[in-house]
Write a protein that binds this DNA or RNA. Structure first.
Length: 189
DNA sequence: AGGAAGATCTACT
DNA sequence: GTAGATCTTCCTA
């Protein structure tokens, strides 16, 4: 079953945690790629120094203030970061998908991003965007519809979850906002 | 025009 | 495992 908008209309870190082991689906014309989400990070609004929303509304980040359940895609160095907007009503925030485990359409992912070892295919936020052919054009699209090019399916799995501080940020909050599945081979680092 | 960025690759110890 | 180079995109001046 597809995760409804209400799933994303809750506290950002709670959504980040519960997205683990959910199924990320990328539809591309005739092909369909599926991957399990194994690592996420929560980013809040203007009080979070690591958030893209920290410096207020810009052209590129305005979806962070918008409806939950939409994609937010922004650039870092040469890569695109895939986020899903998730926050309570009136709040600001999103969940960065940091790593996924490829399940279906792996051949297609390898065409997009050739690697020797499949474990290197999607174990980082820039890497998974290349493998799943996700870029700026998808910014702002709705992930709560089966018609969408990207959406997320529910699962019954209950993974063992660990938390840590976010990776690579200059100044973090005191809460641990990075979540990952313990022992999973596709978690970054 | 200049600088910074939520990363990645390569080339090493 | 860790250090240094990378050379895109968008913001600020």
């Amino acid at each position: 079953m597809i995760l409804p908008k209400e799933f994303y209309e809750r506290d950002t870190s709670k959504v980040a945690r519960e997205l683990l082991d959910k199924l990320l689906v990328r539809r591309l014309k005739e092909t369909r790629m599926e991957a399990a989400i194994v690592e996420t990070e929560a980013y809040y609004g203007e009080d979070d120094p690591a958030s893209r929303a920290y410096n207020g509304v810009k052209n590129y980040n305005s979806v962070m203030w918008g409806e939950p359940g939409r994609l937010f895609i922004y650039n870092v160095h040469r890569y695109w970061m895939l986020n899903i907007i998730a926050h309570e009503t009136g709040e600001v925030g999103g969940v960065l998908i940091r790593a996924v485990e490829p399940l279906k359409g792996i051949d297609r992912m390898l065409m997009n991003r050739p690697v020797e070892d499949v474990r290197e295919l999607t174990n980082g936020p820039g890497k998974l965007s290349v493998a799943l052919a996700v870029a700026k054009e998808l910014n702002g699209t709705d992930v709560t519809s089966e018609e969408a090019e990207v959406f997320v399916l529910d699962s019954d799995l209950e993974p063992e979850i660990a938390a840590s501080h976010r990776i690579g940020v200059r100044e973090d909050l005191k809460e641990e906002l990075r979540f990952y599945i313990v022992g999973n081979e596709f978690v970054s680092r």
